[in-house]
């Protein structure tokens, strides 16, 4: 399996997109840390961009990569290799190289401008988000053979998680404003990995003071190491479930 991952890596590094992605993140982080003044402010501005661009780039890149690797996978499938292994290698290859780009692009400026536990959470969040959205991308890719359709589904997924979902939840909150909604909000944010990541980071910044009673509720849950563990565990579920189901579809489909 390691061998296959190695070739997936080769393939990804050869096309310059991941390199460009790293540079983009580097420039962005340096810029925001320089502009922000305090590292906390830099992290706050970064958070917005991370939660928007990381899912987008992860899902689009992974989907196109999957379709472009069809030949590669076909070649390997005729070899005495388990299909699940091929699939996992592709997944790990893509997710790890994107995460690596992210860690390099955001982590290095963070180290230079002041590492903090919040920064670590932002990094962890970014890595989890990458793994989650690559898994979602693979799910979109195995659902349909048509590349255009696959990318379409991937973009819709991104659109849903990064944008629409929050809109829907805000609408629900607005519609049911007369009821106590704290726990419901908690549940609904857990159902979107992007929100989950955003809140983990926000609660560790002092803007959490703006979040009033609901924020205090969140903090009582997510404030402890146990709660943070739970949140990241939940994000892990968000990566594993689409990965496992797409892996199952992939090993059962005809090539």
């Amino acid at each position: 399996m390691n061998k296959i991952i190695k070739y997936v890596f080769y393939d990804i590094i050869r096309n310059k997109i991941v390199l460009a992605y790293t540079l983009f993140l580097l420039l962005l982080s340096f810029g925001l840390f320089n502009l922000g003044g305090s590292p906390d402010k830099g992290i706050l501005s970064l958070l917005n961009l991370v939660l928007l661009t990381v899912p987008l780039i992860s899902i689009v890149f992974a989907t196109t990569h999957f379709y472009n690797s069809y030949e590669f996978m076909e070649l390997l499938v005729a070899q005495p290799i388990n299909r699940k292994k091929i699939f996992m290698s592709e997944y790990l290859g893509v997710a790890c190289s994107l995460s690596g780009a992210f860690i390099l692009g955001v982590g290095v400026p963070m180290l230079i401008f002041g590492a903090s536990i919040t920064g670590l959470y932002l990094l962890l969040t970014g890595v989890f988000i990458t793994f989650i959205f690559v898994a979602l991308a693979f799910l979109a890719s195995v659902i349909t053979r048509d590349k255009a359709k696959g990318i379409g589904i991937a973009l819709l997924l991104w659109f849903y998680f990064a944008l629409i979902y929050d809109g829907i939840v805000l609408f629900i909150l607005y519609a049911f404003a007369d009821y106590p909604l704290e726990s419901a909000t908690l549940a609904m944010t857990a159902l979107n990995p992007v929100d989950l990541g955003r809140i983990i980071v926000l609660l560790n910044l002092d803007v959490s003071a703006l979040m009033g009673y609901t924020g205090a509720l969140y903090k009582s849950i997510l404030g402890s190491l146990w709660g943070i563990g739970l949140a990241f565990g939940l994000m892990l579920v968000w990566a594993v479930v689409p990965l496992a189901s797409s892996g199952r579809i992939f090993s059962k489909r005809d090539l």
């Binding site: 706050l44 958070l47 419901a184 909000t185 929100d195 926000l202 803007v207 009033g212 609901t214 969140y218």
Partner: peptide, 15 residues
Amino acid sequence: RVPPSVMFMRSFMVD
């Protein structure tokens, strides 16, 4: 109006 919606601070949708 709905205090819990503060949890969506810095969501892109909000902007």
